[in-house]
């Protein structure tokens, strides 16, 4: 395998569809379920035509924010804006033509083929009098091709490996043909190779098709590697946002995640790489016994 170093080269990529990219953002957004407020008074601009990754500790409101951006959750206060228009006052079908959403660990019904799953992505473009068009066919074929699962089209979704299944779901959102794609932890439950496969796919979609990608990720190092724009959240607020190199620092990792860590340049991509500080119980070299570790001298 050749290591692809081109993922660090981002800013100078020529994008043919840059004029049509959508501006998605939020103003004074407060979100919650029933009495429980999860996100408080949040302002946000997502750079169009870029890959934005949202990170933060568990229960920081990142998935809730993503749901609101995809119009799956009505804001308690504030607005989600798409090209300056209030998203929650637009027709559901219109929104579905603008923004694709991939929920966290979605499930397909038993016995559904990959082709059928991907074809459902065409629903926002279909009417009862026009069920299946040549355009639908072309988009689905293209989506299967883009995700490299053309050969799996006739297979049942529940027979696929985790990585293949996630690619099938992503293919469905590609077939939806939206300018913006929101993904909630698309790498959850995948092994490391499949995580990278999915993240590479998202970067390629952004690069080749000019899609604006917004993803919630758990892994900070992967986030720093694959994001153009990183948003770090804690307790329903944005703590920092911008270039990963500026956002990810020792201090912030400590403040936001409560983790003692040092940040070094990734040896491959030069993006920030978080290395947790000396473990409390380190394995001593040689005999494999657990011993209390020396306190780290350079944290802080």
């Amino acid at each position: 395998m050749t290591v692809r170093t081109d993922m660090t080269v981002r800013t100078d990529v020529v994008r043919t569809e840059s004029t049509s990219t959508a501006h998605l953002g939020a103003e004074g957004l407060t979100l919650g379920y029933a009495e429980h407020t999860v996100v408080t008074d949040l302002d946000l601009q997502l750079p169009p035509g870029r890959v934005t990754v949202i990170v933060g500790p568990n229960a920081c409101g990142k998935s809730t924010l993503l749901r609101a951006l995809g119009r799956l959750l009505k804001p308690a206060r504030g607005l989600v804006l798409l090209d300056g228009e209030d998203l929650h006052h637009r027709p559901t079908r219109w929104v579905a033509q603008q923004i694709g959403v991939l929920a966290q660990t979605p499930t397909a019904p038993e016995g559904m083929t990959v082709f059928d799953l991907v074809a459902r992505g065409r629903q926002p473009h279909q009417r009862w009098w026009r069920q299946w068009s040549a355009e639908d066919e072309a988009r689905v074929t293209e989506a299967l091709h883009q995700t490299g699962i053309t050969d799996l089209a006739d297979r049942h979704v529940d027979e696929l490996s985790g990585g293949q299944r996630q690619r099938a779901w992503i293919a469905m959102t590609i077939a939806q043909d939206t300018r913006t794609l929101l993904l909630d932890e698309p790498t959850t439950y995948l092994d490391i190779a499949h995580q990278i496969e999915v993240l590479d796919l998202l970067r390629r979609l952004n690069h080749d098709l000019g899609r604006t990608i917004v993803a919630v990720l758990h892994d900070l190092n992967q986030a720093a590697r694959y994001a153009d724009h990183l948003i770090m959240m804690r307790d329903g607020r944005i703590v920092a946002h911008g270039d990963p190199a500026d956002v990810v620092t020792d201090r912030r990792v400590h403040d936001v995640f409560g983790l003692e860590a040092i940040v070094v340049p990734d040896p491959v991509t030069a993006t920030p790489l978080i290395v947790p500080a000396v473990p409390r119980y380190a394995r001593a070299r040689g005999n494999g016994e657990l011993v209390p570790a020396e306190p780290a001298d350079r944290i802080g």
Partner: peptide, 13 residues
């Protein structure tokens, strides 16, 4: 059948 969130995301009420 794909889940409530996905159905919303596909433009269904």
């Amino acid at each position: 059948a794909l889940g409530e969130d996905t159905a919303h995301g596909l433009g269904q009420r």
